[in-house]
Structure formats: C-alpha cells, structure tokens
Design a protein around this nucleic acid. Structure first.
Lengths: 202, 202, 202, 202
DNA sequence: TATGAATGAGCCTTCATTCAT
DNA sequence: AATGAATGAAGGCTCATTCAT
C-alpha cells in the first residue's frame, strides 16, 4: 500500500473519530442543555476516554463550535435540498427552519453562547463567518426567487435573526408543553413570513 | 409606634436592601457577562456580605430573575412614557427597544439563559409571565394604534422576539466593533419595522 | 467588646488558621518530597477542606513559599539564639546549619525549585529577598566576629551556598543510609569550615 | 557478512538512535527547564515518535539520567583536556566548572531532582556512582597537583558540592539578569577557590 | 522496530451555598 | 439580621506510558 494511501486512510480514520465525538456530543445536547454537559459525559457517550477528546479537540469550546458549525451545515443542506426542487415559499422556508431549530435546541442555545460572551479563536471566527455566509447565500437565494431584490442580504439577516428570536423567546416558555410551544413558534414564524411577504406588494 | 408601622418600616427597609443588591448586580452586569459574575463580586459591589445576599434571595437564579424582571419593567416604563406622548411609530418602537437592549445586554443574555435551560420556581414563572404580559400590552397598544387589529397579540410577540433575535444573532458578532454592530442591528430593526408596516397596506 | 478588639481577635484567628495549614504542609513535607504533595493531602493533614486552603493562600505556590520563608526564619532564629550566647565558631555555625537542613529537607529542595524554574510573584520575591538578607546579616555577623572583615557579605553568601550544595549533592546520595549521609555531610561541612578559617591566617 | 558484524551494526545503529534522542532532550533542556519538558516535545525535537523513545529508554527518568551522565562525562572530558596541558590552578578549575554549569543549567537542576526525590534504578545508581567517581578522580588529581594531599578525596567532594551550591543558590536569583548572575557566581567561585588555597598555606 | 492514538488517574482551582457566631 | 469562613463536589485539562498495527 502506498504511503499516500496509508496517510489517506489514517486521515479518514481520524475524521471518523472526530465525527464520533461530535455526534456523541450532539446526542447529549439533544437530551440536556449543553452548558451542563461535561467532558467525562461526552467521553462516556462516545465510548472513548477523556484524553481522546483532547486528541481531537484543543478544548471543549472547539468541540462546541464544531457542533454549531455542523448545525449550520445541516440547515444549509436542508435548504439546498429544498431549493433544488424549486425554491420554497417564505412560509415553507420559515417552517423548515423553525422545525429544524425545534429539533436542535443546541443551535440557538449556542447562538446565545458564542454570539455573546463566548471567546472564539481567530480560526473559529473565520470558519464560522464562512459557513454563516454560505447559509445566508441560500436564504438570500430564496428571497430573490420570491421577488425580493432590494438589499436582499440584509433581509436575509433580518429574517434569520427574527426566527432565531422566536425560538429563544418562546421555545422554552415556562409552563407550556412541547406541543403547545411548537404550535405557537410555528404560528409566530408564519406571521414573520406573512409580514415579509407583504413587503413585496408595496 | 404601632406594631403595624414598625413592621411596615422593617418591610421597607428590607425592600431597600433588596434593591441595593439588585442594583449592585445590574451595575456589574453592565460591565461584564452575567455568567461570569459570582456572589462574592455582587456582595462586594453592594457593600454587604455574601450571607446577606442569601437573606434576600433564595439563590442566585432568583436574583438573576429579579434583574430580568427589572429590565422588563424598565422597558415597559419606557414605552409608557412614549405612549403618553402619543403612540410612537413602529420604527420608533423598534429603535427604542433595540437601543435599550444595546445598553442592557444582560436582558437578552438572560432571555437565552432562562428561556432555555434555567430552572424557574413556580413563583418566578408566575411573576415573569405577569410582567411579560404587561409589557406585551404596551407593544400591542402601539400596534393597535398603528392600525394592526387582527391578532395584535401574536403580532406583538412576533415583533418582540424578532428584535430579541436581532440582538442575539448580531450584537456580539465576532470581528465587528460596537459602533458597527449598533448601526447594523438598528438597520435590521428598521427592516423588521418596515415589513411589519407593509402588512398594514395589504 | 470593641470593634477593634473583635477585628484583632479575628485577625489572630486567621493567623492561627494560616499557621495550621502551614504546619500541616511542613509536616507532610518532612515525610515526602514536596513536589509529590497535593492540596487534598495538605487539607486532610490540616483537618480542613480543600477550599479552606484557598481561603488562606492564593495558590499552592504561595503556600510553598510560605514554608520556605518559615524555614529561613527558623534558621535566622537559631542563629540569633546562638549569637546571643557569644558568636559560635565557624565549625559550629556549619554544623548548626547542616543539622537544620538534615531535618528540613524541604528547605534545600525548595531552594532548587524556586531559585531555578519557580515563578515568584513580585511580592513573594520582595519578601524572600528581605528575609534572606536578614539571614545573611546573621551569618555575616558571625564571620565578622570570627575576624572576617574583608568582603564579609560575599563570604557569607559563599559559605551559605557551599553548605546548601553539600546537602543537595550528598544528602540523598543513592545507596547510602541516613546516618552515613549525615556523617559525611557533616564532615564536608567541617572541611568547608576549615578552609574558610584557613583564609583568616593568610 | 557475519552474524556478528550484523549484530554489531545493529548495535551501533541502536546507539546512534539513542544518542539522537539524548541530544534532542539536551537541546530542549538548554532552552527550557527540564521539568517542563514532556515526551512529545522530545520526540518531536528528535524527529521520532513517542513510542520510539520508550524503545530506547524504560521511562523518562532513565533518559534524564542519561543526560545527567552525559554532563558528568563532558565535565570530565573538559578537565582531562585541561589536565593534559598541565594541571590548572584552583581558580581556573572553579571557573571552568562554573562556566560549564552556567551553560548547562540542567546539570544542577537534575542534581536537585535526582539527588533528592528521584527514584533511581539499581543500574542507574551504579552507572552514576561510577561516572561520578571518575569525575572526582580528575578533581582530586588537580587538588593533589596543587599540593592538597591530606584527604584529597573529601576535599574534592567539598569543592564540587560548594560550586554546585553556588549555582543552585544564586544562578536563578530573582530580580537579577544573566550577566549580573554570572559575574556574581564567578566571584563566589573565586572566593571558594581562595579559601581552599588558603588551607594549603596553613 | 517504529508508530502515535488511546488511556485515565490525577491535579489544581472555583464557587454556590451553609451555618455558627 | 448580618457576617464571612468553611465546605466539597465538580470541572477542565495534562501527560507518562501502553499497545495494536
């Protein structure tokens, strides 16, 4: 076997391992607030030792960011799939996004964490910005397809953050159950979609 | 002096003390992320002992909630003042709110904290809901004054959460300075105001 | 009781507690290499909790330095007692010092630790220099009393470090037992005393 | 090729590898305190894997000892060269030794490490004693050449340890720069040389 | 023999909360 | 009611050593 192949194999093994840890973390985060998850739990969930986590991630923050990036990618992917079948309506877009967030609370939890106090390395910042831009490209594409041409980028940002805000403000609303919450956040998302659409007819 | 008066005095003293602690916490939170503030710092800032904090608050979360409630009240108050001089335009409303958030990061930081993982006592939940409802009354009043009659309550929620989302998603955007951020969040708030207004003309 | 007295009491209590921890550490160090002692052991030995250690010392290094300073003080004290009864001969001085070191291995172990890699805070450095100077004053006084007048300070340093060197180089000599070691280090100290005395007769 | 030759070749290869690792470690130690160097750094510096280190050394301590032994040999060698051109004066001897230590801090750092807490295998102890004895032979030879006949061995030990002590006590003196330190340690070494010489004239 | 990922015990330190005074 | 020292569980991270390939 050539050295190149070997190193390629090793690299893919490494990637697999990293993914294993990443998915273990994501799995845990779906069960409990990521701020209350510790290295030992992640290691146990991944079936590796604590030390191994640090062979793949410099520190926990780096892992958390990877989870965040993974979420961004997934949403991007989701929209890509949708877009390939003809661009969705605004309502559909909002619904897709809200549904994704409902099933991935970590995403907007981390949004709060990293966008506010969290210290990001320069590298992480760069990666984050890059992936975020790609996601925004998709949203912008949909808006353009729906007829929004003027300042479509800012509109994308506004829509994106409005939907995040809905989840953060109402997804954990004390005293309501999951179903009620999902129904209401979806309704609010619909309202947002509605007002955006109204803009078109100006 | 009657017993009643005495107890009244004591109660007001107690309130004053509680307020002292509350304001000390708020003062600290304006300087640093509330997640990195600890009891000792708050006690020091308030000029009381750590133990005293626990004489007025069952635990730190209760204090944090009090800060949160205080913020809600302040915004409510801000809107009351504005409303008393004739209801503001949507643009103005959004600007007021965004500006307040810009100067009180803790508010949307705590939104993320409590609305997501934070455990709230039943009492706190009740209080929170009550105050939130009052704030929503004000926003709803403005929307109604601007001609939004259909499902004005949900519209208020949608607007409110959209603005929160703008701050959470962009207020700490890595790699941008405070001024740029404020300019952009204000712009996005303006867009939100714009789309909401468009809805009217449908 | 006056407030002053109270605060005085409290301060002395604090000092007592600090001393308790200090002595617990010293006790442990007499049994095993200080580099292998951890906070939990010290806490257990002192009969306090781990957290308490940190109420009295910013970190372990600060505690270690305190032990080191305590040693310097003890030696100073030892020499003071000796000097008060008429200055000892060089032989006696060397013997006293070597004997002290034999019973306080930590001292020259820490000499190696702090004088070489150890990071000292500015405050610690200051304290250390000050105490060291006082110790050197005593040694210098003895040398002067014995007739060494020319550059007595440097001679003190030379003598002091020579004796340290004897302990470091031979006190743990592999393959020898404690008694043999003590006998030999004492002999070497005697030699050092002898050559220093010879200098006088030049 | 005979089997013997082959095994000889292999042995010399093995020696070369061991030397490679040894020199890598020494190179690192000249840049930073050996107590803060870890296996991975050494492996990287040597251009081999971590596992390879353990193919040549049972554990890190064994490698450290090898470095120590190498230092002893170097000093021995240095003195041999000097002695071959006629035995140096005591002053010269002290200067040579102090200068060597100044450039090889690891030596007296390890002196502290191994002579005190470090666990040495029987084999290491044997080797160490043997090399140390050879070094002492050289020092003793110089002392004898300078006229010290009585108990020249112990005098050698005393001189050797005194010089070590100077370095340990003053080479890292907090608050002084390298040049000042070297000047002062050299001065102290001169004093030691001076008092030893005085002994002769008794 | 060389490799280097995996291991996991062990370390220092933090901090919300308690409780004797 | 006020105090603040004491508590100790919990957490992130390191690193010498092993071992399957």
């Amino acid at each position: 076997m050539s050295k190149q192949k070997l190193s390629h194999l090793k690299q893919s093994e490494r990637d697999a391992r990293r993914k294993l840890i990443l998915e273990a973390a994501r799995s845990l985060f779906s069960k409990k607030d990521f701020r209350n998850v510790n290295v030992r739990e992640i290691a146990a969930e991944a079936g590796v030792s604590v030390g191994t986590i640090y062979n793949y991630y410099a520190d926990l923050d780096e892992l958390f960011i990877d989870v965040f990036l993974k979420n961004i990618e997934e949403i991007t992917c989701l929209l890509d799939k949708e877009n390939s079948e003809g661009f969705p309506t605004l309502e559909k877009l909002c619904e897709i996004y809200i549904t994704y967030l409902s099933q991935n609370m970590t995403f907007y939890q981390m949004m709060g964490h990293f966008m506010l106090g969290g210290k990001l390395s320069h590298e992480s910042t760069t990666k984050l910005n890059q992936r975020m831009r790609i996601l925004m490209d998709r949203i912008e594409a949909i808006l353009r397809a729906r007829g929004f041409h003027e300042d479509a980028r800012s509109l994308s940002h506004a829509l994106f953050s409005a939907l995040n805000g809905i989840m953060i403000s109402y997804a954990g609303y004390p005293g309501r159950n999951i179903e009620e919450v999902h129904k209401y956040t979806t309704k609010l998302a619909g309202i947002i979609a509605g007002v955006f659409k109204a803009k078109l007819k100006d």
